[in-house]
Nucleic acid binder design. Structure first.
Lengths: 200, 200
DNA sequence: TCAACGAGACGAACCGTCTCGTATTGAAAT
DNA sequence: ATTTCAATACGAGACGGTTCGTCTCGTTGA
């Protein structure tokens, strides 16, 4: 068993080439055949890698997928903040419309469904996703709402987590249910939720 | 292949005993070992049934699970309407609190996660769920909101589907994410969404 | 020097199909 | 009404195929 924490005295290190090939193969494969037919052997074959190399570094298919997503979102180092034009409603509509468009993008739909399905039935994977993706993203969303509170666009004492949940949850759910994710829906969602938050 | 549409001239009919045993076994098993380790062979063994009897009547594990849920919700013929005390906010808080309690019930948590995961990666299962469970339930929810509109508690022209989505989506999503489903959350959710709907 | 690597052999589990012999049913014959 | 009979589902499990996760091999490379 490899000791990752301590640098080995001699011997080969983990191959970055193989790691990237595995993540890319997993992402491509799941997009082609779906999660049900995604196999470790298939990933290894497509990546040109021995099965053991996958079993050595990842505990499950789900974590491989999660890493594949992290690799995707880390490569183009997007700005870690939501737009802030001063107009919360306009900014949120922009972001939610973009999110909706991304969700229905055929390149991401199947892989995201696979990851979501894996998380539903694997608490440890859910915890790792929570720590490595969900929490940072939520912090960014909370920060934008918090700035709106500071600017007086929302009442002081606004529940930031509630606000984030109300804004994004219906989008995710419609995507899962296969419902229509239109810009009109995103707009109505933002308008209604913000009206509710302002009225508190 | 059995012809279900036309009555056969002779021969045995589908065994209701086996059908019930299979659905019960599937529900119990998935609650014990989770979806990843749920196998047709395991269901057949626990139900005291041949594998072919399952393959003959169901196209996939997911549909077996869906039928198991339908059998559960059809047995106690609950009233097909949400409570209507005249106070929409109070009624919704009651319903959402009950839903939250049901979601965290350890008897239902794993089976529901399994079904949700199966639907995420199987569009045909999703369509069948949509038709047999989601649409009837949504109609009941829409009807309650519609009565509130008629009673003048919500403005005319209120988007019923948007209202239902805003009210229930955050609950589902928190459950999926493993977040806390408290009565306080349900209450704040109802209060904020209704405030937003009233302000339109 | 020594651990990670690609490759693949290995037994176990489960897949979905099939083939038994048995049990149950409705229709036809008595 | 009772018996006979053909058709079909049933429980059981054999079957080849696929994937699992583990385990060796030599080879490569830091």
């Amino acid at each position: 068993m490899p000791d990752v924490t301590r640098a080995a005295r001699g011997g080969a290190r983990r191959s970055e080439t193989s790691r990237r090939a595995i993540l890319a193969a997993a992402f491509e494969l799941v997009g082609e055949v779906g999660y049900a037919r995604l196999t470790i052997e298939g990933i290894a074959a497509r990546a040109g890698v021995g099965k053991q190399t996958i079993y050595r570094w990842w505990p499950s298919k789900g974590v491989v997928l999660l890493d594949a997503f992290l690799a995707l979102s880390e490569d183009p180092q997007g700005d870690p903040a939501l737009p802030d034009s001063g107009d919360l409603e306009a900014d949120l509509k922009l972001v939610l419309r973009a999110t909706a468009a991304e969700l229905v993008d055929p390149r991401y739909d199947l892989p995201m469904r696979a990851l979501a399905a894996a998380m539903l039935t694997d608490p440890s994977l859910r915890a790792e996703y929570e720590q490595r993706l969900e929490q940072p993203l939520r912090a960014v969303k909370r920060a934008r709402v918090e700035r709106a509170v500071a600017a007086g666009q929302l009442p002081p004492g606004t529940d930031l987590d509630l606000a984030v949940d109300l804004l994004w949850s219906p989008l995710w759910r419609r995507w899962q249910d296969g419902g229509e994710l239109t810009a009109a829906f995103a707009d109505a969602l933002v308008e209604t939720v913000l009206a509710g938050l302002r009225a508190r």
